[in-house]
Design a protein around this nucleic acid. Structure first.
Lengths: 200, 200
DNA sequence: ACAGTAGGTTAACAGTGTTAACTTAACGAA
DNA sequence: TTCGTTAAGTTAACACTGTTAACCTACTGT
């Protein structure tokens, strides 16, 4: 078999990610995962402390990949505004092209995240920290008007996630066209940072 | 006892909502809920088909309350722009003042929501449908520039949820001030609809 | 040839959602 | 008053869950 060559730990991770995405968290169990991999349930505990740890590892992987995608996207441009837009589009593109990985990041609700080791959160910061520094640069160059770049970056992050999760979770109103929704939402989020006109 | 006067069904709902918020979904069980209420686990099945139905009922209640809050907020003003801002602030205020109810709406992840009866989703639409009609009015009066009011409304909805959930789920970067984050995010979301300036 | 170890296994425990069958109290009709 | 019916709850059981402890087994280095 070819799969025998791949380390068991990796096979467990891949199988879990797939099952997590297609069946949902509450449907997966250690026994089912083990069964799909072709080992006994307790073998999973040789590589992961418990179910939480297994899921957290999956999240960490996904966060890493997302961060890399964003950094690559930004690196393609020198111009600050182009970098700003590239980051946002990289985020959205990654989420839409890798729904399994993206969904895993946010699939786990607050309670289970509370058990997520705090130091790991710093890795998750990489993406919007980069965005923050781009915003700062934008302010310096006079293109944007932003009080607190870090807050602004986080705000964009949250807004993007809201848009993406509505799309991926299929909560979108059936009367609304998916692509148009995404496009207009991104446009709106971007636009909000170039114009700061007082309401007349 | 005073609690004996309250119907069992209501006591179950109240207890479940509280436990759901404080302990999280994965920590609650039919037996624990029943124990806290003071009845046997199977008694819950006299009023709810299963655990899903129990949770869905809770969601429905919360959605209803949120909708009412928004409608009340909008009704306080005649001016379109004022109504627009009132809706957004009502949404945020409700979420922050009733975290138990708001969190319950989004606590249940996509998989469990797929089992949520589709006809119930229409009720959930009430809030942003109202927002959509206000946007439409704003376009008519020349205050705003929006292509598709319904899409725009949904986009705002998603963005607001993103911001709120970051705050309530305590995923906020510790360097960032909570109140300032909320304020600036709302400001940004609102501003995006008044100004549509092409990027130079 | 033998001890140690890496990489698995089976058996068991306490807890889960859910169903079926049972009890018990209240009520109206004869 | 006694019967049948119904409502509201109970207990016992089933198949499944995460997790632990004890066991096996094949390969390694000496």
């Amino acid at each position: 078999m070819n799969t025998e060559e791949i380390p068991l730990r990796d096979r467990i991770l891949e199988t879990t990610r797939h099952m997590l995405f297609s069946d949902g968290y509450s449907s997966i169990s250690m026994r089912k995962i083990a069964n799909a991999v072709g080992v006994s349930a307790t073998s999973i505990y040789l590589y992961f402390e418990n179910k939480d740890h297994l899921v957290h590892t999956l999240i960490e992987e996904s966060v890493e990949d997302l961060s890399v995608a964003i950094e690559k996207g930004a690196a393609r441009y020198d111009d600050t505004i182009a970098r700003f837009e590239a980051i946002i589009h990289s985020y959205v593109d990654f989420a839409l092209q890798n729904p399994e990985k993206y969904q895993v990041i946010y699939m786990v609700q607050s309670e289970r995240m509370a058990r997520y080791p705090k130091e790991k959160f710093r890795k998750a910061r990489r993406g919007y920290t980069l965005l923050g520094s781009v915003l700062e640069q934008g302010v310096k160059e006079g293109h944007m008007e932003v009080d607190e770049p870090l807050i602004a970056a986080y705000s964009i992050w949250a807004q993007l996630h809201g848009v993406i999760s509505v799309v991926l979770n299929q909560r979108l109103d059936s009367r609304i066209d998916r692509e148009k929704f995404i496009e207009e939402s991104i446009e709106h989020i971007i636009q909000g940072f170039f114009a700061r006109i007082k309401i007349s």
